[in-house]
């Protein structure tokens, strides 16, 4: 028989995704001899795209955004492979994406290049290594805007220096429901880090999903920044776990009632809006982590992208009205949640 502590250790390493959903790295880079994207003319924009494509087309697939149907563009956004901002100027921008969708390069967003890499759960090290591997490959072929004092120069001075943003997507239902989240925000800002709701700036965290990332990019090395974010993220993971346990121990009936009602809606409702879905999704995910329900967490996590509007539309043959989309969402959720 396996030793209890050993078993627990093994399950913990697998179960790191109870709080940390995914990790992301972003590097901002600009060509030394071109104005930043906001100040480029059409010819310069095309030149920037041309350079990136010729340097990266051996490993990444280029997407000309203006030739991509609007629905396909939105799916890339819902998968976080490109930003909404990139779509503001589709005729001037492009994206390059790896076949496994773990690496993407946005061309002519705020900066000429935004190298992004994605890794599951708390594997920020992996995302870090992949982003810099791509960066190194690029720097063999091109000159980036760089200043000995200020490091890599970016369109916005908030990214100058390393141009690096390391982030971990965290699911914090317990911290949110208990109101502790405001303490988290304060603690984090003292460390040169920032935490914000994942879906949209300036709105509440839908689905109790937050993105923890570094705010400081200048005067700290890439490794220091990585370690800052990792340390803070693991503290928040522990913090969230503590409150989860405390909530469950303190008022089991009411907590489980809230979780199971949410599951009831997801399993039974005939239509569900995106907002209601996110609310219930959070409670159901929480329930799965606490083993209140038998559902596998990866099934629940997959829904996060597949129940988004553009993904639902892409599965349909005709254009869906809002109500039709809500019906499709309910159908999809029910088919996936079948144990």
């Amino acid at each position: 028989m396996l030793d209890d502590s050993l078993l627990q250790k093994a399950s913990e390493s697998v179960m790191d995704n109870d709080v940390a959903i995914s990790s992301r790295m972003r590097l901002a880079r600009n060509f030394a001899d071109l104005p930043f994207p906001g100040f480029m003319d059409m010819e310069q924009a095309q030149e920037s795209v041309r350079r990136c494509v010729s340097a990266l087309s051996d490993t990444l697939t280029p997407y000309a955004l203006d030739k991509l149907p609007p629905l396909k563009r939105m799916i890339l956004v819902e998968k976080h492979l490109i930003s909404r901002d990139l779509l503001k100027t589709p005729e001037r921008s492009a994206a390059m994406i790896s076949s496994d969708e773990k690496l993407s390069v946005m061309i002519n967003e705020e900066d000429h290049l935004r190298i992004q890499s994605f890794a599951p759960a708390f594997e920020l090290d992996l995302a870090f290594a992949k982003a810099f591997e791509a960066d190194t490959r690029l720097q063999e072929k091109m000159n980036f805007a760089y200043d000995t004092d200020l490091g890599f120069l970016t369109a916005c001075p908030t990214n100058t220096g390393t141009g690096m943003r390391a982030s971990v997507m965290l699911h914090l239902p317990a911290l949110t429901w208990s109101g502790e989240i405001s303490k988290v925000t304060q603690a984090v800002s003292k460390l040169g880090l920032t935490i914000r709701g994942l879906y949209g700036e300036g709105t509440e965290a839908q689905g109790d999903l937050y993105q923890l990332s570094n705010q400081v990019t200048l005067g700290r090395t890439e490794e220091e920044i990585l370690s800052d974010v990792k340390t803070a993220a693991s503290q928040m993971v522990e913090w969230e776990r503590r409150i989860r346990a405390a909530l469950h121990a303190g008022d089991k009936i009411n907590l489980e009632d809230r979780m199971l009602r949410a599951l009831g809606v997801l399993e039974r409702a005939r239509k569900i809006t995106s907002k209601e879905f996110m609310q219930k999704w959070s409670a159901v995910r929480f329930a799965s982590c606490m083993r209140v329900i038998p559902h596998n967490i990866s099934v629940i996590d997959d829904l996060l992208v597949s129940a988004q509007p553009a993904s639902l539309q892409s599965q349909a043959s005709e254009t869906l009205s809002d109500e039709q989309r809500d019906i499709r969402r309910a159908e999809l959720v029910q088919s996936r949640l079948k144990v």
């Binding site: 720097q139 000159n143 200048l218």
Partner: peptide, 26 residues
């Protein structure tokens, strides 16, 4: 920009990675 950078980042000098061609110099 220098005072602004200092307020955002707390520092004004890059200490991280450098491009290969300026590596030795840096």
């Amino acid at each position: 920009l220098t005072p602004l950078l200092s307020r955002i980042h707390g520092k004004t000098s890059h200490t991280g990675r450098v491009p290969p061609d300026t590596f030795e110099q840096t």
